[in-house]
């Protein structure tokens, strides 16, 4: 029991310390805070189930992030997504000191991306992973990460700056 208790304490400490960060990643992936909480719950449960493995890895944050992304992609493939209420733009407000319109536009644009493209962009540009690290996380080739990034950014550009292409042509 002592071992189990120590394990639980260690797990609780880790989740307490990292849940805010994981929740932000989950939010960027799924686009709303309620969905992020559901995703976080799934991911943290999986972390507990595999805690001995988490303890053994050099980079537990990387492991947790991978679990979260896999949970997100699995959820998108399942019927769960049909229960998610589409983003309407008025659920939460951006932090007051930021660019309100820009942030809301980005949120809408991200919501319109296919899940895998979105995951690639979040890992590359929010989590600051390299192409190689992103490929390892998503278990795909580096070329695939590059092509998904390019297509994702292309699409965001068209959604965020529909007139920019005319200007630059």
């Amino acid at each position: 029991m002592a071992g189990s208790s120590a394990r639980d304490d260690e797990f609780t400490d880790y989740v307490s310390a990292r849940s805010a960060w994981l929740r932000q990643v989950a939010f960027l992936l799924c686009g709303d805070w309620h969905g992020a909480d559901e995703l976080l719950q799934v991911a943290v449960t999986r972390l507990y189930l595999n805690w001995s493995r988490v303890r053994a890895v050099e980079n537990p944050d990387g492991y947790a992030r991978t679990v979260l992304v896999n949970a997100y992609l699995a959820e998108r493939r399942s019927s769960w997504v049909r229960r998610v209420i589409p983003f309407t733009g008025d659920e939460e407000r951006p932090a007051a000191d930021g660019d309100l319109d820009g942030v809301l536009d980005l949120r809408r644009a991200l919501a319109d991306l296919p899940p895998r493209q979105r995951a690639v962009l979040v890992l590359r540009y929010y989590c600051d992973l390299s192409v190689e690290e992103t490929a390892v996380t998503l278990r795909c080739s580096q070329g695939n990460v590059k092509s998904q990034s390019a297509r994702g950014i292309d699409r965001l550009r068209r959604m965020l700056h529909p007139r920019a292409e005319e200007v630059s042509s």
């Binding site: 929740r23 932000q24 990643v25 939010f27 960027l28 805070w33 939460e92 407000r93 951006p94 932090a95 930021g98 660019d99 820009g102 942030v103 980005l106 949120r107 991200l110 962009l121 979040v122 540009y125 929010y126």
Partner: peptide, 10 residues
């Protein structure tokens, strides 16, 4: 943009 979005009031 993503950093700012992640700081959205939650």
């Amino acid at each position: 943009g993503m950093r700012e979005l992640a700081r959205t009031d939650a």
